[in-house]
């Protein structure tokens, strides 16, 4: 994924921790082979070459990543679109047969906006298998997943800062069992709205915090679904929140307790911009 993956973990045996990290990196390599657009024999390259009516088999992980991507496409009304406007709904996903079929040709997907988060999710599960429950894993600093905090701490300390002025600290969080994803524009960057093809204006950055589901983690068999894809979801929502209207962001957050979002608008005339925060109202 041409990006840096890092594992921070607390364990008395450094060698054991290093071996676990090695297992994570091997896993990321494998995902890269399946999800890279540039490798001619990756699942994604084959999907991108599908003619109308043709189909291809993919690995379980690729299919799962696509299913999540499709779900978020629907949830965000197409604002998160791994096909960048070429027609994600034209791909039929058959999770049992591991088959992807293209109803029409010309669909081009790029899982860059979700693959990193998905890899981080799988890495977290691997770390749990290794009983490294007190860990943080991130892909390229923009997809962070925290498990339990290090001993004697309430949570992992995370900060949000202004991408245009990294020294400007916007917020401090203390998090556990959650994924935090960031998307931001530095000078000259731009994001295109897949629904209109136009460059997005008015947003400088967005962050999303997605809690990991509290399903029993300890006694799940290795690699059993359904996946707790908190980081993949956070990645996708963050991308969408760079584009969606504030009301839409508010309604998505209101409908998903635990989900939190922050949006930094483009600086006003006086050069200042205030961070906006969205979250479901806390139930009494």
């Amino acid at each position: 994924m041409a990006t840096i993956f890092e594992v921070h973990t607390a364990h008395p045996d450094a060698q054991y921790a290093a071996q676990a990290a090695q297992a994570v990196f091997d896993l990321v390599d494998r995902l890269e082979r399946e999800l890279s657009r540039f490798l001619t024999n990756s699942d994604v390259a084959r999907i991108n070459g599908l003619a109308a009516g043709a189909s291809t088999r993919v690995t379980p992980t690729t299919l799962e990543c696509l299913v999540i991507a499709r779900h978020l496409y629907d949830l965000t009304g197409g604002a998160f679109d791994v096909s960048i406007g070429t027609g994600l709904p034209l791909l039929e996903l058959d999770p049992d047969g591991l088959v992807v079929r293209a109803r029409e040709g010309g669909v081009r997907i790029d899982l860059g906006g979700i693959g990193k988060g998905y890899a981080v999710d799988l890495a977290a599960e691997l770390l749990e298998e290794w009983d490294l429950g007190a860990s943080l894993v991130h892909g390229g600093f923009s997809s962070v997943l925290v498990l339990e905090p290090p001993p004697a701490l309430e949570g992992w300390a995370l900060t949000l800062s202004d991408p245009a002025a990294p020294a400007r600290l916007l917020a401090r969080l203390s998090a556990r069992q959650a994924a935090l994803s960031a998307s931001g524009l530095r000078k000259g960057d731009h994001i295109r709205d897949p629904r209109t093809g136009e460059a997005v204006r008015g947003r400088r950055a967005a962050w999303t915090l997605v809690p990991r589901p509290e399903t029993a983690k300890a006694d799940r068999a290795p690699r059993e679904g359904p996946r707790m894809a908190a980081a993949a979801v956070a990645d996708a929502l963050t991308t969408a929140f760079m584009l969606l209207g504030l009301e839409e962001i508010e309604s998505i957050c209101a409908a998903s307790p635990g989900l939190e979002a922050w949006v930094l608008p483009e600086a006003g005339a006086d050069g200042s911009a205030d961070l906006m925060h969205f979250a479901a109202p806390v139930e009494p």
Partner: peptide, 28 residues
């Protein structure tokens, strides 16, 4: 060619009319 589309050319549009061409590229 089974896969030709103007999309690629349009997406790379430069110059005064680039906005229009890129917009066109995004309308399936």
């Amino acid at each position: 060619s089974s896969s030709w589309s103007a999309a690629g050319y349009l997406r790379q549009a430069r110059g005064p009319a680039a906005g229009f061409f890129r917009w066109l590229a995004a309308q399936p």
